[in-house]
Design a binder for these strands. Sequence first.
DNA 1: CCCCAACTTTGACCCAGATCAACGTATGCC
DNA 2: GGCATACGTTGATCTGGGTCAAAGTTGGGG
Lengths: 208, 208
Amino acid sequence: MKTYRSYAAGDTILWRGEPLEFVASVVSGVAALSKTLEDGRTQMVGLLLPSDFIGRPGRRQIEFDVTATSEVTLCCFERRPFERLVEETPNVAQRLMELALDELDAARDWMLLLGRKTAREKIATFIEMLARRSNPDGTADPSRLALPMTRDQIANYLGLTLETVSRQFSALKKDGIIDFTDRRSFTVTDLAALHDETGDDADGGIVP
Amino acid sequence: MKTYRSYAAGDTILWRGEPLEFVASVVSGVAALSKTLEDGRTQMVGLLLPSDFIGRPGRRQIEFDVTATSEVTLCCFERRPFERLVEETPNVAQRLMELALDELDAARDWMLLLGRKTAREKIATFIEMLARRSNPDGTADPSRLALPMTRDQIANYLGLTLETVSRQFSALKKDGIIDFTDRRSFTVTDLAALHDETGDDADGGIVP
DNA sequence: CCCCAACTTTGACCCAGATCAACGTATGCC
DNA sequence: GGCATACGTTGATCTGGGTCAAAGTTGGGG
């Protein structure tokens, strides 16, 4: 009833429209949801990290491709028993609802980024997201970071080209905001300056 | 326990971060969810049509502004009794889940549009969406359509400027694909040609 | 160890769409 | 009815980021 599957970086896990016989949760690695136009332009529309979920109650297929960004291990369940579980246990249904709402919030931030931010703001936002994710509490040294994907994948994530991504990384380095140790890992030299580059509102609304 | 509220076009219904004492469903009119950067650039991140819902179980505030695009009437419930209702009736919880997943699918299509489509493709996609919405079955004459918003709002929706929106409408008119009867309503002269301009994949995946 | 393929950087150039500006055209209010 | 205001169109110009091209870098396999 519960099986594990592994995928190498770059593998396609699911094609758009493929009937979903399983639901799965990510055990390790990073997978991406993406959509493609008829001429091949693609845009990532979601990122799956460990504990994230593929497949939804009542949906028999998905409207996007799922590919492994790094090596990925999934924990898969058959759809039927899973749906029975959801119907019988309100807590599970509620948890799935929370996951969906979190994804929706993330999608909306991402829409603001795609529609209105400049290339530099997109890269700064991306780095800040990495920093926050790898250091949720703001306690430990947040400066050393590893890029979880190639320039090309970052471009797909941010609605840019890989050349622009590369140039913006170089520019942030030249401006003393980040510093590369090797091409997949770097340190954030000036976190406050980085935040100033994101274009984001100082912070949230009315609450004190 | 159930009250109605009305808002004029342009009114702000809720500010980002404002504590949510009510949940509501749209009775009539169109409302928009939008996010703003520190320098004032804004991007719509959701559109609320009649029967759509504001407020989520377990969320006490929202991360975006809600404004009335046209005159809007909401049907409001107090949050507490509503949450009790959700907990007690699985059908309601399930329905809310479906709404959230539909919004998520819509958000992902929109991300593809914002990140990768050209101005012309964005406008064509927008018009096609209007056509589909006002004529869900493809039966009646789909050609006569009314724009539910100003050029400025359309630009905010599509991640463009109002000038570009205006120019693209003019271009589609010049190319004989649409024809304006007045500046808020037009007919689609050539639906197939319109679809060819959207950039969208012919249609979906593997299913026959 | 070296070579090959995949990834990355950098440069030169171009163009879609933003910006700035000016001029129509509806709509409601006095 | 006429004026004020918001909305819309069109033109001229500028520019951020895309495109094309070429030259580094690096890590894994033979």
